[in-house]
Design a protein around this nucleic acid. Structure first.
Lengths: 293, 293
DNA sequence: TCGCACTCATGCGAAAACGCATGCATGGCG
DNA sequence: CGCCATGCATGCGTTTTCGCATGAGTGCGA
C-alpha cells in the first residue's frame, strides 16, 4: 500500500465534495478545476485504502467512510475558522483588509460618509464592503463587521446598539398632496410580501385603501414608491434620504428593529475594528435623530 | 494583498515548525525538504499578511501570531487523528495494514507463534510489528494495537487483560548448581537500575550477596544473565524462554504487572483488530501457565 | 583561532500537480 | 426522437511545486 502522507488539502477537498455532491460544484467552491478534485480524491482514497465515494452518473456519492472523513474534516475546518478569527482579532496593525457588510440601502444612505471618513483616517486599510440582504457568516469570516437590523445581536456575537429607529409612510409629493386635500380618500400602497394587510390606522382614516403591489426587496419597493406607484412604509432614514419621497402623515411613526453593529467576539478586539468603531459611533450618535420621526 | 486561498497543508507545516523550532527538524518530520517548509511558511505569511516567525540564525522563532496559528492547527491535527482512528475502526475489510507494538522480548518469546497463526489465517493483512520499549501513542495511531505490561490499561484506552504474570530469579546452570550445593553462599546479581537493593528474602538466605551490575534495558540484562554474570530477576515467561537460563529457587515467584492488550476505543471495533484478538486470546489462554511459577 | 555542526537563503533542473480540451454517459424536455 | 444540460474519465501541454547543491552566517569546542 502506498500509505503516503495524508495531505490536509485533500481532507478539505473531501469535505467540500461531500457537501456539494459533484466534482463541478466542489471545484467551483475551491477555486480549482474539477479534474484536480477528482485526482485529490483518488489520491486520498489510495492513501487510506478505503473507498470514500461511489462514482455515479450524477455525482460523487459519499460512502460511510467518506461521511466519517467529512465529519472530522468539518471539525478541522471550524478550528481553521477559529484560527482566522483569532489572527484577525489580535492583529493590531492598521493596515490590511477590513470587510464589512450591511443591507444595501443602509450603505447607500447612511454609511457612505462614515466610509469616507474612515478611508481618510486610515488610508492603509483596504475596506471591502459587501452590500447584501443575506446575513453573512461572521464565524466563517465572510465579513469582519456587520450591520444588522434586529431586536438583538446574533447568538455568540458581540454587538453594539447603534440607534433605535422607526418606520413611517412615504410617497411622492403627488400622493402627499392628495392625502392633504382629502384625508379620507382611498390610497394605493406598495408593501413588503410579509405585510398582507394594511394597518388598522390606515383603514380607519382612509377606508378603501388597498395594497396594490407586493415586493420581496426593499430596493425595488423604494423604487416603486419613487415612481409614484403608491405609499410605502419604510424606515424613516430611508424615506428621508430617497429623492422624490416625502412623508405622508397618515401613519404615525412606528418603532422598528434597532440598528446593531456586530462582530464575532474573537474579531472584535482587532485594531481595524476598533478604529472603525471609533469613527462610526460618534457619527451615528450625532445623527440619531435621522432615524426617528 | 495576495490573499490566496489558505492551504491546509501550510497550516500543518506551521504547526510542526513551531513544535520543532527549525526548518531542518520540521522537514524531517514532514518528510519533505526544508526548502519546501520555508517556502510554505513564506506563502502562508503572504496570505495572512502577518509575520508568523522571526528568522534567526538558530531557527524559526514563532511570533504571537505563529503561536496562535499553531495552537489552532493542533486542534485540527487532533481532529485528523480522530478521523484516522474512526476510519480504521469502522473498516471491516480483512485487508490492508495492522500495526501492533509490544516490548521486544515479548514479541520474540511470546508473540511469534501468534503472528504466524494470524498471518496464515489472514494473509491479506499486512502486519507491521513495532518492537519498542517506549509507549507509542495510540491516539496518534502510531500503532493500532499495543501490548502493555502494567497494572491497568492506559487512560481512555480500551483494554483486555491477557494474563497475570510473576517474576522469578534465573541464571546459568553453573549458578543454579552452586546454589543447590550451598544455599547460604553469597551470590552475584544483575539488576535493573530501578532496583537498588536485593530483596530481604535473598539477603536472609544467602547473606553477602551483591548486585554486581545495573542495567537500564531488559534485553541487555537478560544477555548478562545468559553470559553468566549473575542471577537476574525477570518475568517467568522470559527466563523459561531464554536458552541457557534455569530458574534458581532462591527467590519464590513474585506477582508482577499483568499483560494487557490495549487499543484506542475508536480502533477496537475494526475487523483487523477483532481478527487478531480472536487468534491471540485463545492462544494466550492456553499458555497462561507459562507466565506463572 | 581554526574547524565543525548547525542554521538559513538562493538558483536551477526535475518531478508533480494542475487546467484545458475532448469524448462519453445520463436524464429531462419540447 | 433528438437536443441540451449536467456530470464523469482521460490525454496532453503547461505551470507550479519540489528537492538538490551551493554559499553564507553563527556558535561551540578542541
Amino acid at each position: 500500500m502506498a500509505q503516503a502522507k495524508t495531505h490536509w488539502d485533500d481532507l478539505e477537498t473531501v469535505l467540500v465534495l461531500v457537501q456539494r455532491g459533484s466534482l463541478a460544484a466542489a471545484s467551483a467552491e475551491l477555486g480549482i478545476s474539477y479534474t484536480t478534485v477528482a485526482r485529490r480524491v483518488a489520491r486520498i482514497e489510495a492513501a487510506t485504502g478505503q473507498a470514500l465515494f461511489v462514482r455515479s452518473g450524477d455525482g460523487y456519492l459519499p460512502t460511510e467512510a467518506g461521511l466519517t472523513m467529512a465529519h472530522h474534516a468539518a471539525d478541522m475546518q471550524s478550528a481553521q475558522h477559529a484560527m482566522m478569527r483569532a489572527l484577525t482579532g489580535q492583529d493590531q496593525a492598521l493596515t490590511g483588509k477590513l470587510t464589512i457588510t450591511a443591507p444595501q440601502l443602509m450603505i447607500a444612505h447612511v454609511l457612505c460618509p462614515v466610509l469616507q471618513a474612515f478611508r481618510q483616517a486610515h488610508p492603509e486599510v483596504e475596506l471591502e464592503v459587501k452590500g447584501t440582504n443575506t446575513l453573512l457568516d461572521l464565524d466563517r469570516r465572510e465579513a469582519d463587521l456587520a450591520f444588522r437590523i434586529s431586536r438583538a445581536p446574533g447568538d455568540n456575537l458581540t454587538g453594539l446598539r447603534l440607534a433605535e429607529q422607526e418606520t413611517a409612510s412615504f410617497a411622492t409629493q403627488a400622493w402627499a398632496d392628495r392625502f392633504a386635500a382629502d384625508p379620507k380618500a382611498p390610497l394605493d400602497w406598495v408593501a413588503y410580501v410579509t405585510h398582507k394587510t394594511l394597518p388598522d390606522q390606515v383603514m380607519q382614516t382612509a377606508p378603501g385603501s388597498r395594497i396594490q403591489y407586493h415586493f420581496d426587496d426593499m430596493v425595488v419597493m423604494a423604487g416603486a414608491a419613487q415612481a409614484g406607484l403608491g405609499i410605502a412604509r419604510m424606515p424613516i432614514f430611508l424615506g428621508r434620504a430617497l429623492p422624490g419621497l416625502v412623508q405622508v402623515p397618515i401613519l404615525s411613526p412606528q418603532p422598528y428593529a434597532d440598528i446593531w453593529l456586530v462582530a464575532h467576539p474573537d474579531v472584535w478586539p482587532s485594531a481595524r475594528v476598533r478604529a472603525f468603531r471609533d469613527i462610526l459611533v460618534p457619527y451615528i450618535k450625532a445623527h440619531r435623530s435621522d432615524f426617528v420621526g
